[in-house]
C-alpha cells in the first residue's frame, strides 16, 4: 500500500460516546457533554488530517 493510499483510508474507529466520563458521579452536565462531543470531533479530525503516514515523518535525531 502506498503512503497516499494509506492516507486516504478513513479512520474507522469512532470515539466512544456513551462512557465518556465514567468516573463522574451523577452523570454529565449538558455543557460537559457538549465539550466532550467537540473533543471527539476534534480527535477524529486531527487523526484524519494527519493520516498515519505522519508517524513515519516523526523522525528525530537522538538528543540528550
Amino acid at each position: 500500500m502506498t503512503e497516499a493510499q494509506k492516507f486516504k483510508q478513513p479512520i474507522k474507529k469512532k470515539p466512544k460516546k456513551e462512557d465518556a466520563e465514567p468516573t463522574t458521579p451523577g452523570g454529565l452536565s449538558s455543557e460537559k457533554k457538549k465539550k466532550l462531543e467537540v473533543l471527539d470531533e476534534f480527535i477524529e479530525g486531527v487523526l484524519q488530517e494527519a493520516g498515519e503516514e505522519f508517524l513515519d515523518e516523526f523522525k528525530q535525531v537522538e538528543g540528550q
Binding site: L55, D56, F58, K59, Q60, V61, E62, G63, Q64
Partner: peptide
C-alpha cells in the same frame, strides 16, 4: 519519536 530516538 516514532522510531525510538529520545531527547530530554
Amino acid at each position: 519519536d516514532f522510531y525510538g530516538n529520545t531527547y530530554g
